[in-house]
Each structure stands twice: as C-alpha cells, then as structure tokens.
Design a binder for these strands. Structure first.
Length: 314
DNA sequence: AAAGTCTTCAACCGCCGGCGA
DNA sequence: CTCGCCGGCGGTTGAAGACTT
C-alpha cells in the first residue's frame, strides 16, 4: 500500500514550534475542534503537516496535560504498568491522567530505565539480571526509593532488628543458577513475551511456594518466591528452578523491586493456600508470610492503585 | 572560562491497523 | 478483495541546556 508521506517535502516547516504557530493551532482547535489532521494545518494557516500538528497538540498544547516532574506515585505506576504492558506507552499514558505517551516514554528511557539497570533489573523483562547485579547498585537503588521514610540501606543489611532483605542466599542463587543443569529446562512461557503478563507455573513442591490461584480478575497474580526459597530450589530436585533465559534472567514480579510504599521488596515465600485477594478500595497482593514475621508487612504487600484498572490488561 | 560530555525531551520517522470507497 | 487515506503508535534523533573536567 503505497502511501504518500504525510509531510510534504516542499514548503512545510519542520523543527521546533514557535509561540505563534502554537497559538494558531490552539485558536483553530478551540474554534473548530480537531478532526481531519491532514486538512487542519491548511485551514489553520500553518505551514506544517497534519501529523506534526497532531503531535504538537497531543503532546504539548492539549489543555489537560499535566506538566512538571513525575510524582513518586506516577513513577511507581509507570513501573507497574510497564511490567504488565511493556512498551505500550499509549496504554500506560491512558492510565496516567494528564501524561502523554511521549512524556512517559521519555521519562522511562531517561530515568526509570537507567535506575532499573543500576539496580540490576532488566528494564525490558523486569527481571533481575545477575550480570548487572552488584550490591553497591542494590544499595544505590535505595536512593531511588528514598521518598519513603524507611532507611532501606539499614533494612537491606539487616539492621534495625529486621532480617536482611538482601538474603545472602541470593548470592548463592547466583552461583547455583550459573551452574544449574536445569538451565536447560527453561520454560519460555513465563517470559514476558509480547508484553503479556503470564503466570509462573506451579512449583512442584508446595513447601517451596506456589503461585496463588487467581480468583480475582482484578488482581495481577504476582506471587513468586524470590527470597528465602532459594535453598529449597537448590536442595529439592523436584523444585522447579526459576526461569532463566539465555541472558540469565530470573523473572520476578514487579513488586520485588517496589512495594506499595516504594521499597524494593524481596519477599518471602507465600503460603501455599490460595489467598482471597480482595479489597474494596484497593487491591492488595498479600504474601501471608508466617515463616518470618519480622519482614515488614508493608514490604509483603503490593497495592494497585484504584486508578489502575488492571481488568483492562487482562 | 572554555571545552567536552552527559542528559533531557520535543519532534520526526516509518510502520501498522482500521476504515471506507 | 484491493487500494488509499488517516490516525495512532513506538523507536529514534538531535538541539539545547546542564554538568563536569
């Protein structure tokens, strides 16, 4: 289907918009609305192509655009949404009122993506990348989340009376993963292909952990052992090792690097019984850790803000 | 103070899907 | 069914400002 380029080569302006051009576009749209972007620039007296006008309007001039820095809540929402939707910037933007896909995309690429990388998390799969991981980065990530009042450095290292969040077994896992023959038994279905969140398969040994049955379509089933069960994987031949890709991914749910209050939350294994996941006001995925109550309940709880209609993702 | 490097983000490009003729 | 138009999307670019040396 040969289609003519929307931007005529001759005579149409490109590059940054001037205030005069902005005003022309605003005036025109306020008077006539926006319908046919192809004819709009001509009617509005602009030497621009329709595409450029549409972009300028939707990304910059639209009156409902919220400008300025992203709030922590927005940032958190972007990460969560990205873990489900992938690079569907428009879909993410649709759930963040006042933000454009372009803005979110830019913010992701310039801020969040880099931070995740520094934390050793692959920004594409939202999985820890062992080849990226180093402890200094993990500690560094605390600054990413430091808008919470918690001193995560202390927590990660086990200070303040709590258990360390960076389980020494993570380090052992790294070693075992690299040498595990089960690397060959990778289940590609669990990878976040095509931006679709997929449930991890059942662990064969229920003592280890198993994903909670999804009784509530509003809930992203997100339970997957990440901390505390590595020994079981190592010791139990029947236990299914977490998936590894060629690139040494260990896919973990998004909440492993951000609890409802923004801390990285490496969680304990959940109880094996299906947990009703309901809340009137918000949806929690609650890992009812009975084995180690010293873990903060906040860390084991992931809240999906109401304005994120998870239903639409499914 | 100047030069070099890095970061940010507005804008562009090319592709795709929907729709009507 | 094919074709062409249009809107929309995601990836990429490059200018400008910020920061570092």
């Amino acid at each position: 289907m040969g289609r003519t380029p929307c931007c005529d080569k001759n005579g149409l302006k490109k590059g940054p918009w001037t205030p005069e051009e902005d005003q022309k576009l605003i005036d025109y749209i306020q008077t006539h609305g926006y319908g046919n972007w192809r004819t709009l620039p001509k009617n509005a007296g602009l030497q621009r192509c329709g595409k450029s006008c549409r972009l300028r309007w939707t990304n910059y001039l639209r009156p409902d655009i919220k400008r300025g820095r992203f709030s922590f809540e927005e940032e958190e929402a972007i990460i969560q949404l990205h873990s489900v939707l992938g690079n569907k910037w428009s879909a993410i933007a649709a759930r963040l009122p006042g933000r454009t896909d372009n803005e979110i995309k830019n913010y992701w690429n310039t801020n969040i993506r880099k931070r995740l990388l520094r934390m050793g998390i692959d920004p594409v799969t939202h999985s820890p990348r062992l080849d990226l991981l180093d402890l200094s980065s993990i500690l560094g990530c605390c600054s990413f989340y430091n808008q919470s009042q918690m001193n995560m450095s202390t927590r990660l290292l086990g200070g303040g009376g709590g258990q360390p969040l960076v389980n020494p077994e993570i380090l052992r896992l790294a070693t075992s993963i690299m040498s595990s023959p089960q690397r060959e038994n990778q289940n590609p279905d669990f990878l976040f292909h095509e931006n679709q969140y997929q449930q991890p398969p059942l662990m064969q040994n229920t003592n280890v952990a198993e994903p909670v049955m999804n009784n509530n379509p509003n809930v992203i089933i997100d339970q997957f052992p990440f901390n505390g069960c590595f020994t079981d994987w190592q010791n139990n031949a029947n236990a299914v090792l977490p998936y590894l890709t060629e690139d040494n991914y260990v896919p973990v749910p998004s909440n492993c690097y951000g609890g409802g209050n923004g801390e990285p939350s490496f969680r304990t294994p959940s109880s094996s019984s299906p947990t009703p996941l309901n809340s009137n006001n918000s949806t929690y995925i609650n890992s009812s850790s009975t084995e180690d109550e010293s873990y903060s309940s906040d860390i084991l709880k992931f809240e999906i803000p109401d304005f994120l209609d998870v239903n639409e993702f499914m």
